[in-house]
Amino acid sequence: MTDPRPVRVGLQLQPQHTDYADIRRTVAAAEEAGVDVVFNWDHFFPLYGEPDGRHFECWTMLGAWAEATSRVEIGALVTCNSYRNPELLADMARTVDHISDGRLILGIGAGWFERDYDEYGYEFGTAGDRLRDLAAALPRIRARWAKLNPAPTRDIPVLVGGGGEKKTLRYTAEHATIWHGFGDVATVAHKCGVLDAHCRDIGRDPAEIERSVAVEHGPDELGPALYDAGVRLFTVGQDGQGGYDLSRLKDWLAWRDERNG
């Protein structure tokens, strides 16, 4: 698949091991630097480092970011489908869409972090259970958007995160406008091919789905090969422990600008 979209760069501010004031300052600095999207994540405890370290909730933070920013798109990478009723999540997303004047991306996945489930009283079940719940939720979210008054300001982009080839990528083909994955270049290229095949199976143009990956190294090492694999949204992850460092993000922004001409 040849994607005519320009390159975009995202920043995932992992809301752990820091104070909210530092998160707020970094969101502002990232927007000033020219980033396209700022993401957080949807967990209740740190994923690494001190397991009971400082941590903040996802969607209340997105509402604050909607007011604190004016240009960047915002979203979770990704919302756990298990934590909120699909209709409630649709309404929350519609509200943040309005607060931000149409800058929300609804990132969503099936969920995996068992401690969140156990300590907050959700049924963890099996991976199959969680995937079935995600499959049921995606059309319910869109159906609720069609009923809300006022309606969303735009067709809210839906980002599905995950690499399962039989189910997650199929749901992505059916419902998403962005796919987010992980892995080396060969893995990402393979997953993109699987997603293309699912799109063809249901009669959808694969070019309608933007391909997004998390990048842990600089653009000279990864950028051209991932671009050739079909990736157009490159997201740098930043942990708050010790303060957020935007130097690698700025390298990706410079590469984006050079690539886009």
Rank of each mutant, 00 (worst) to 15 (best):
W252V: 09
R132C: 01
G237E: 11
S100F: 04
G261T: 06
D155K: 14
T60D: 02
I141G: 04
L106M: 11
E216M: 13
R200W: 12
A176Y: 12
F39S: 00
A136F: 06
I178T: 12
L13S: 03
S70A: 14
Y244L: 12
D129Q: 14
I178F: 11
N81Y: 02
G183E: 13
D184I: 06
K166E: 11
R142I: 06
R256T: 09
G125D: 14
E208K: 11
L13F: 10
L131A: 13
Y122G: 06
A186I: 01
V188P: 07
A254E: 15
K167M: 13
W179D: 03
Q241F: 08
G242E: 10
T168C: 07
L62Y: 01
A93Q: 03
T79M: 01
E67D: 02
D118Q: 14
W41H: 04
L169E: 06
E123H: 13
G53C: 10
G128N: 13
A76F: 03
G223V: 04
T153P: 00
L11N: 01
E32T: 11
E174A: 13
W145A: 02
A225M: 08
V9G: 06
G242F: 10
A146Q: 13
N40R: 07
W112N: 09
G10W: 11
D116I: 08
T79H: 00
S247T: 15
R259I: 03
V158C: 08
A189V: 01
A76I: 06
H55A: 04
L47M: 08
Y244R: 11
I105T: 15
T177P: 01
F113K: 12
E73H: 11
L138Q: 07
H190L: 07
F182A: 10
Y171T: 01
A173K: 10
A207W: 05
I105N: 04
G34D: 05
D257W: 01
D36H: 03
E165P: 00
D22Q: 12
G203E: 07
A66L: 04
F44L: 01
A173C: 12
L148M: 05
R144S: 08
A66Q: 02
A135L: 06
P150M: 10
T79V: 09
E57M: 05
S212R: 06
L159W: 11
V213N: 10
A136D: 14
W59S: 00
G63S: 09
S247M: 04
A68N: 02
E87L: 12
G102K: 09
V185A: 15
R103T: 12
A207K: 15
N85T: 04
R71K: 12
H55D: 00
A143K: 08
R8L: 11
W252F: 09
D196G: 04
A137D: 08
G128P: 06
G230R: 14
R142G: 07
R211A: 06
T95S: 10
R115C: 05
I202P: 08
D220I: 05
H17F: 13
T2R: 15
